[in-house]
Design a protein around this nucleic acid. Structure first.
Length: 329
DNA sequence: AATCGGATCAACCGCACGCGG
DNA sequence: TCCGCGTGCGGTTGATCCGAT
């Protein structure tokens, strides 16, 4: 009994033979897949269209990367998973040549176990309380994104505050860009946590949000979840599309107040350029700036979503737009 | 050499979503 | 507005691999 999409046909199931692979491969490379449901017939295969699609995407596609995952790929998976949760297809987009299925299998067979071994909850990336090591840096302050399926916001707000001075004095001699946000807005989206300081530290990808009034801090510290190579500098934050995911991640969570400041950009690329510069993707990071510009060259985009990417969900400092950010490098 | 159990990976299943009629 | 279809996605399953005993 085949899948409903091809129930009229007699379909084969199970592993693909080399002959089937060749037929499918030959057909797709010469004709393209078009409508998948018609592929099996056109290609002379007794398979379900869905099965053909899967076989092509996961195995036959010429641009697939084979072999085991590199440490950097692993790092990216962890980073993006922390934000997106089990959005394997989205995560795979950050890994050229890898499929969602591959990423998912790698996560379930390998990364998940490593995280657990390190006392981290693979769902939330938070330290499992019982396993929380005493000497862990920021063990009380590390705030993590929760994956979208979790019941809370992507961040865990922690207290007491990790002081700005402490952050500054960490032995990370990196290019640090400090963004000072304007005072709490008149119409805060989230009344309880007005964010007044945002810090993004590039090389070690330390993002820290601090509210100087409420003594609440939010840290987004990539290094904190590192497994085998704690000081790796790779960061999915700089991957093309990453901010899209942040935006998505920030919007799937129910905000505690309706959004107030939908700002429509009429010149998306120009705005993206300005924003990219403000985020430090200029000068030595020219390439990143160009990437970002190309990512945001649509005619409009939602500035609040962009801001939410920096200050996700609920803890977002409403009202103050990116344009108002003042760089203090 | 045989067997067992865990790890890995390919494939399937069911659901959700978008789109067009 | 509803419905059917095609597609994409995440969860799950089952086959195979491989190391330990």
């Amino acid at each position: 009994m085949g899948h409903h999409c091809c129930s009229k046909q007699k379909v084969k199931r199970g592993l693909w033979s080399p002959e089937e692979d060749e037929k499918l491969s030959k057909y797709i490379t010469t004709h393209g897949h078009g409508c998948w449901s018609s592929v099996p017939k056109q290609a002379g295969l007794q398979r379900c269209g869905k099965s053909c699609r899967l076989r092509w995407i996961n195995y036959l596609r010429p641009d697939l990367k084979r072999g085991s995952f590199s440490a950097q790929e692993e790092r990216v998976i962890i980073d993006v998973h922390r934000i997106l949760g089990n959005r394997w297809a989205q995560i795979a987009k950050h890994l050229p040549g890898r499929t969602d299925n591959e990423v998912k299998n790698f996560w379930n067979s390998c990364i998940k176990k490593k995280l657990i071994a390190q006392g981290l909850d693979p769902k939330t990336h938070n330290l499992i309380p019982a396993a929380r090591p005493n000497n862990s840096i920021n063990s009380a302050n590390i705030s993590q994104f929760h994956h979208p399926q979790s019941s809370t916001t992507p961040f865990t707000i922690s207290s007491p505050i990790k002081s700005f001075e402490t952050t500054q004095s960490t032995p990370m001699d990196m290019n640090t860009s400090l963004v000072t946000l304007p005072p709490p807005p008149t119409l805060p989206l989230h009344e309880t946590i007005p964010i007044s300081t945002f810090q993004y530290q590039d090389a070690n990808v330390l993002m820290s949000y601090k509210d100087q009034n409420s003594h609440t801090s939010i840290d987004f510290t990539h290094g904190s979840s590192s497994l085998d190579q704690p000081n790796m500098s790779s960061s999915s934050f700089h991957q093309p599309g990453f901010m899209d995911d942040c935006m998505w991640a920030s919007t799937v969570e129910p905000l505690e107040a309706p959004r107030q400041n939908e700002v429509e950009f009429q010149q998306g690329q120009g705005q993206a350029q300005a924003l990219a510069c403000k985020m430090g993707f200029d000068g030595p990071n020219e390439e990143k700036r160009l990437e970002m510009e190309s990512s945001y060259n649509s005619s409009t985009f939602d500035i609040e979503l962009m801001e939410s990417a920096l200050m996700p969900s609920g803890v977002f400092c409403g009202g103050s737009s990116i344009e108002q950010l003042q760089w203090d490098c």
